[in-house]
């Protein structure tokens, strides 16, 4: 069972950022349940095998004000995949004990298709791949994380010691296999 975490404040964003991921899992017969981040319980985290934290729109950033709601990530021992906003959260929770976003999030707007070079295999992506971006910020990750792409803006990361993954792009648009590869880890 996979837990999908919805970080959208705006209800209408569910259809754009959460449902496409649910559809990918449904198509592959992967069992899942979806919860808004501010309604998560210890029981939810206990019963799931893996967690996907979905993204949201570039103006829907309330979740970043509520980073302490994600403190459970610090001691969670199951695989996690953060997508865009989900990656911002991973960077912020692991990188800054005061949970202020300003020090870690750097401004960079990218919207549309871009080619990114994956220097090592990242959940099935290797070499130059076309990915879909929709973000105004990226995270400056610390030494606890491996970065799989070139350039100053980390596109794909993994915690050095734990199964915690993050992507800045939206794999639900052009790289759907990345999501199923994560589910089948």
């Amino acid at each position: 069972m996979i837990l999908i975490i919805n970080i959208c404040k705006e209800k209408l964003h569910y259809y754009e950022f959460v449902k496409p991921i649910e559809d990918i899992l449904r198509y592959k017969d992967i069992k899942f349940f979806t919860k808004p981040y501010n309604e998560l319980t210890k029981r939810d985290l206990k019963k799931t095998k893996k967690v996907i934290i979905c993204g949201t729109s570039i103006y829907d950033n309330e979740f970043l004000e509520n980073c302490p709601d994600f403190d459970w990530l610090l001691n969670f021992n199951k695989p996690v995949l953060g997508i865009c906003g989900g990656m911002h959260l991973i960077g912020t929770v692991f990188g800054n004990k005061t949970h202020t976003k300003k020090t870690l999030l750097k401004k960079k707007t990218e919207i549309g298709f871009y080619n990114e070079k994956f220097e090592e295999d990242f959940l099935g992506l290797i070499g130059e791949k076309e990915v879909y971006h929709l973000h105004n910020y990226y995270v400056r990750f610390g030494k606890d994380f491996l970065i799989f792409t070139g350039g100053k803006c980390a596109q794909a990361i993994k915690h050095r010691e734990r199964e915690i993954y993050g992507v800045l792009f939206h794999p639900e648009v052009r790289n759907k296999d990345l999501i199923t590869n994560f589910c089948f880890l």
Binding site: E10, L12, Y15, E16, P20, S57, I111, L134, V173
Partner: peptide, 22 residues
Amino acid sequence: SRIQKICNTLNIECFNPLWQKN
């Protein structure tokens, strides 16, 4: 992406509720 960019420059939200729908 073109509509998203316009919304971004005008500082307004952009919703695509049919995005990637079967």
